[in-house]
Amino acid sequence: MLAEKYPERVAKIFSKYPDKRSGVMALLYLAQEEYGWISDEALSEVAALCEIDPTQVKSIAGFYTMYSEKPKGKYWLQVCTDLPCALRGADEFYKGLCDYLGVKDGGTTEDGLFTVEQVMCLAACDHAPMMQCNFHYHENFDLEKAKTLVDRLRAESAQKQPSSEK
């Protein structure tokens, strides 16, 4: 349980706001970090902490793109394909990355390591193509750099090394 495992982090979240309900977004992030995705159990746990109904938490979790309501790969690769990035080759980059990983748009690799998705503008248009790997930005990217990153993360995982990407 989050409250038992991370009492200080939960307390810090609530200390910012006059209303417990405002902690819902930060707690959903904490739940996702702990469980990998937002399950119905995680929703109920967050709801109890914020003293609101699980249905209300579910509406929040569903509204925002950064909460996963189903399990995703260990590495979540989000490639911006909006207009400014697309003018600098992001569509071709995205297609090449999907092909290299052997998945379709939005798919997860069979080993469960990578989920790849298109994402809306990430405020890095001057460094296109770009992608976000979990929370980390990779800018001025190209397919060769992406392949190198994917290979490195695969190797780390195979050797059970600590991940270099949070």
């Binding site: 910012k16 706001y17 405002s22 977004m25 930060a26 959903l28 992030y29 509204f63 925002y64 793109t65 950064m66 909460y67 994402v119 809306m120 503008c121």
Partner: peptide
């Protein structure tokens, strides 16, 4: 002063 994080919504 506090920082609040959104979660992906224009």
């Amino acid at each position: 002063m506090f920082v609040h994080l959104g979660a992906g919504a224009y």
